[in-house]
């Protein structure tokens, strides 16, 4: 059986908000290492990979591997009933038809109990190769969100150019064009507000802004975001949170 108690409902609520528009149904794979999810979006352009490590729960118990097939919109509706500060406990039997969710208020004067029907999902799992990326850019998550939102007003696409001079986000559309260039900065007081650029070679790739804007729904999960790029491979956008990560992979736009 699975029993996983999470001290802050907000983590799960924000995680769901960050993926439910990309992915409709997904298996939550539970093992003794924690709870993970891998799913492509409907158009097979992006891939979401979530890990909530066992040590992020207290307690965490999973006797055997379980795949909990969940409609994310339904889970999101159930989680709406949890307050951000509630303690959430997830429970499932070994061959479960239902997922049980308990929300306890901090001072334990309110306990809400929900049961959600599970579904059988035959999901394709992709093998993601270990990649040493040519460019690794870490920046404030809110900055990345703002750049994506601003440039999406200009064009459907953005070209990200990482070089020794900085990282440049550029878009060109019917109304004109625009770009934002970030230089490396160092803010020792608040590392999450720094921008760092590690580069082994220059990289230029073009991506759909629709997807990037969607990825930035994860902004409330982390102060910083890391973009990892190599020429001719998907972009990795990673939000690290306490006890896990949310990663998005996005296939580049290529010359036909």
């Amino acid at each position: 059986m699975l029993e996983a108690r999470l001290a802050q409902a907000a983590v799960l609520k924000k995680t769901l908000d960050a993926i439910k528009e990309l992915v409709t149904d997904a298996n939550f794979d539970c093992s003794d290492g924690g709870i993970s999810l891998q799913a492509m979006d409907n158009s097979h352009v992006a891939l979401v990979s979530l890990l909530l490590r066992a040590d992020g729960f207290e307690p965490y118990r999973c006797d055997r591997n379980l795949a909990l097939g969940i409609n994310l919109n339904s889970l999101s509706k159930v989680l709406r009933s949890a307050q951000n500060e509630d303690i959430i406990t997830l429970k499932a039997a070994d061959d479960p038809d239902n997922l049980s969710l308990t929300f306890e208020s901090q001072n334990q004067d309110r306990i809400s109990e929900y049961e959600m029907k599970l579904m059988d999902i035959d999901q394709e799992h992709l093998g993601i190769p270990e990649t040493a990326y040519a460019a690794v850019i870490t920046m404030p998550a809110a900055e990345f969100q703002r750049i994506c939102r601003d440039l999406s007003g200009i064009s459907e696409s953005v070209t990200i150019d990482a070089s020794k001079d900085g990282v440049k986000f550029a878009s060109a559309g019917d109304i004109g064009n625009g770009s934002v260039t970030l230089k490396q900065t160092h803010n020792p007081e608040e590392p999450a507000l720094s921008t760092s650029i590690e580069l082994s070679e220059s990289v230029t790739l073009t991506f759909s802004l629709k997807y990037l804007v969607n990825f930035t729904k994860a902004t409330p999960l982390a102060g910083a975001v890391t973009l990892q790029m190599s020429n001719d491979v998907p972009l990795l956008v990673e939000y690290k949170m306490e006890g896990g990560y949310l990663r998005y992979y996005l296939a580049p736009k290529i010359q036909d």
């Binding site: 097979h44 891939l47 992709l126 093998g127 998907p234 296939a251 736009k253 010359q255």
Partner: peptide
């Protein structure tokens, strides 16, 4: 022309 590639073109089936 520029076109959108699919993620499966890069990551193999497990």
């Amino acid at each position: 022309a520029i076109k959108q590639s699919e993620i499966k073109a890069y990551f193999g089936r497990k």
